[in-house]
Design a protein around this nucleic acid. Sequence first.
DNA 1: CCAATTGTTATTTA
DNA 2: ATAAATAACAATTG
Length: 274
Amino acid sequence: MPELAEVEFFRKRWSAGHGAKVLEVLLHQGKKVFRHCDPAVLRRKATGARLLRSEAAAKQMLFRLSGGTWLGIHLGMSGELRVEPPGYTPTQHDHLVLVQRDRLLVFNDPRMFGGVRVHVGKNAPAWWTKIAPAILSDGFTLSGVAEFLKRRGRAPIKAVLLMQERFPGVGNWMADEILWRAAIHPRRLAGSLDPAEVRTLRQECRRVCRLALQTIAGRGRDLPPDLNQHIPQTWLFWHRWEDGGRCPRTGVPLRREEVGGRTTCWSPSRQKLR
DNA sequence: CCAATTGTTATTTA
DNA sequence: ATAAATAACAATTG
C-alpha cells in the first residue's frame, strides 16, 4: 500500500512518541521483517532509549533514538504504523512494538515484504544516506531524468517510473497518476520520449508528489469526498480500481492491463501509443 | 481452487 | 557485460 505520501502519513503517527522513553521492545523474533537486522541488538539498544525524531524519504522511514541508535522501517506492500493505548495486546502481525508509558508504537505487516533495519553509530547509515535525491528537491534535475530515461530506453516508461534509484517514493498508483497527467502512454519506451515529453514528465512527477503530500500525508486515504473537488484536475487515483471507471477528464472508459509486471490503468483517449 | 494486491530482489532471458 | 523480463517472497480477500 504505502508510497511516498502514505509513508509520511505513517511516520507522523509515530511522532506522537517523540521525546518519550521506550520502556520495552516487543518483537516477533525470526519473522521475515527482521531479515536485515539483529533483533537482539534492536531490543538491547532501544530499550530505555528515548525516541528523538524521525524523517521519511522515498518509501522509508528513519527513527532516531538516544544512544546513537537508528531504526529504519520499510512498509513493503502491506505494512503500516499505528499508535495504540497503554495495555494494548499485540496481535499476530504486530511484528515490532515500542512500548512507551502513554502509548504503544506498532509496526504491523501481514505480508512481511517490509522490513526493519538497525544501525548504531554517530552518523546515519548508508542505507539511508544513499537514497536518491527526493523528487521535490533540487537534485531531481531535468538532465538527470533525461539521462536515466535514455539508459533505460528499452523499458516501458511505466516500469522506469517505479525504479527507486531515480524516482524515490513512486509506486504503482503514483506512476499511473503521473503518466495520466503527462498524457503519456504507459507502454511507451522510455527512450522514445521527446524532450518536451521528458520535461512534462518531470513536472508531473513533482506535481503529483506535492499534491499527494498535501492531501494524503496529513490524513491518510480517508479523504472527505469534497476534498477531491479542491484538487486541481481530479485524481485518476479515485477511478483506477473501480469497475467501469472512467477518465476524470474525458469520461472515456479507462483501460487496465499489466505493464512492466504491474497492473496499470490509463486513459486511452488521453494517453496514446505512437 | 483461482486470481488479485499501491514492493523489492534474485534469477533467468535477451 | 548490461539491461529487461520473470519468478519469488507471504498473507489475505473476493
